[in-house]
């Protein structure tokens, strides 16, 4: 269906995506070696992780070539649920940590 539009040029899209994923992974491993400040390292790793996920979903899974209905159903549902899970768990995790330190 939508995927046919971009396969006429061969398999370039997949290998360009592969190259980007490889470069991003090398950068992520580099952050470990550089010993950046913890906050910036966590922020950079999460941003790079989301960019890699977008590359895989968009190009490998052809999501960016699909109808907007499907994109919204898949991406928004997963992103919001994931975000809500982490937002709800973050304060509770810290509270348990404080309780274990005080007891």
């Amino acid at each position: 269906m939508a995927a046919t539009e971009h396969t006429h040029g061969g398999y370039r899209l997949y290998w360009v995506t592969w190259l980007w994923l490889l470069i991003l992974t090398i950068f992520m491993l580099g952050f470990e070696v550089l010993r950046m400040p913890r906050f910036f390292m966590v922020l950079a790793l999460i941003v790079f992780m989301l960019v890699k996920a977008a590359f895989i979903a968009g190009n490998f899974m052809h999501l960016r070539f699909e109808r907007l209905n499907l994109i919204v159903t898949v991406a928004v549902g997963l992103l919001i649920t994931g975000a809500v899970l982490f937002v709800l768990i973050y304060p509770d995790g810290l509270r348990v940590l404080q309780l274990s330190r005080t007891s």
Partner: peptide, 27 residues
């Protein structure tokens, strides 16, 4: 397949959130 992927994605989101909780709660 997309609906399966969404539900399976939620399973892994739950597992990773559980890991996040244990990680934060560990001194």
């Amino acid at each position: 397949m997309w609906i399966f992927i969404i539900t399976d994605g939620l399973l892994f989101a739950g597992l990773l959130a559980g890991y996040g909780f244990l990680r934060l709660a560990s001194p």
